[in-house]
Amino acid sequence: MLAYSVYGEAGGPGKTTISGSLAAAHARHDLDVLAIDLDPQNASLSYLLDVDDDREDPDVDHLVRHLIDRPKGSFEDLIRTTDHGIDIIPAHNALSGLDDLLDRVAKTANDMGEDFDPTTRLREVLVEFGVADRYDVVIIDPSRTEGAGLYNAIAATGSLVVPAEATAKGKQSVIGLEQLVGGLEEELGGIDVGVLAVVPNKVDKRSGTQRTYLQDLQEVAYPVPVEIPIRGALFDGAWEHRCSPYEFVEEHRERVPDRERETLELIDELAATIEAEADL
């Protein structure tokens, strides 16, 4: 099974757009895909893939309940399937309080002489569900801020795909990857964290400054399989119609520009490169 979290420290690199695009690409490669939305922001993967209708309902079962051992139903019932074959566990507003909720459960467990690691709960729940036997690919879209959501995502997947802009901020975020990975490994008690790919996104090669930063990104110690160009109409259209960019061009475009087809081919190439890491 291939499992990874899409994460970068810097804001604005298109983390959720990349997550949804890769989930769709893997599904189009005839792989069984489970996406997990751990981002409490409203403009999250659940919104993009049009499965966020229950996120404000306090009475529904949701992932946070399962992480704190207070489920209202089976884990399988949390899973929604999109029209294009991606299974997704949607985000719920309860994610905004995940740190406090897990800390309370951990304190109670400690008082009772029991073990409860608030950073590995998602991994435990997924193992109990048998996710490795059910899916070929698991993608987690966590919050950009450090905390229980991010730690659980990394502990569950052990691997990162890192979107980065070809800017000074993006360069610094990639330069700091080694320190970030080391910090996550220490926080998670020695779990090895690997970087499957750094993905320069929103690239404009007409910009001399961006060309310089792209060259710098190509020299980092992590794989940089493709560079995703600026495609505002393509990706904004996907957000407007709440679908992956593949569905946007197939169902909402009368004429598809060659540059958009080429961008989708780059996403396919990125997905295939990541799949090769797990011999899929």
Rank of each mutant, 00 (worst) to 15 (best):
I18G: 05
S19G: 05
G20P: 02
G20A: 12
G20D: 00
S21D: 00
S21I: 04
S21H: 03
L22I: 05
A23C: 11
A23S: 14
A23T: 04
A24R: 01
A24C: 09
A25F: 07
A25S: 11
A25Q: 04
A25I: 04
R28Q: 13
R28M: 09
R28G: 06
H29S: 04
D30A: 11
D30E: 12
D30C: 08
D30F: 06
D30L: 10
L31F: 05
D32L: 05
L34H: 06
L34Q: 06
A35Q: 02
A35V: 01
A35W: 00
I36W: 01
D37G: 07
L38A: 02
L38K: 01
D39I: 02
D39R: 04
P40N: 09
Q41W: 02
N42F: 15
N42M: 13
L45W: 04
L45R: 04
S46G: 12
Y47P: 01
L48R: 12
L48G: 08
L48A: 08
D50R: 12
D52A: 14
D52R: 08
D52M: 12
D53P: 06
D53L: 13
D54K: 15
D54W: 09
D54Q: 15
R55F: 06
R55V: 09
R55T: 11
E56P: 09
E56N: 15
D57T: 13
D57G: 13
P58W: 07
P58T: 08
P58I: 11
D59S: 11
D59A: 14
V60H: 04
H62T: 00
H62K: 00
H62G: 00
H62Y: 00
H62Q: 00
L63H: 01
L63R: 02
L63W: 09
V64N: 09
R65T: 02
R65N: 14
R65E: 11
R65G: 11
L67E: 10
L67Y: 08
I68D: 11
D69Y: 15
D69L: 15
D69M: 14
D69T: 14
D69R: 14
D69K: 14
R70I: 01
R70P: 05
P71I: 08
P71H: 07
P71T: 12
P71N: 12
K72A: 13
K72Y: 13
K72R: 15
K72T: 09
S74Y: 10
S74T: 14
F75G: 05
E76R: 14
D77Y: 08
L78R: 06
R80W: 06
R80E: 12
R80T: 03
T81G: 05
D83S: 15
D83E: 15
H84W: 13
H84P: 02
H84E: 13
H84V: 09
H84M: 07
G85H: 01
I86T: 03
I86M: 00
D87Y: 08
D87M: 08
I88L: 08
I88W: 01
I89D: 04
I89A: 07
P90L: 10
P90G: 02
A91D: 10
A91H: 10
H92E: 09
H92N: 13
H92Q: 11
N93E: 12
N93K: 13
N93T: 12
A94N: 08
A94K: 12
L95H: 12
S96W: 03
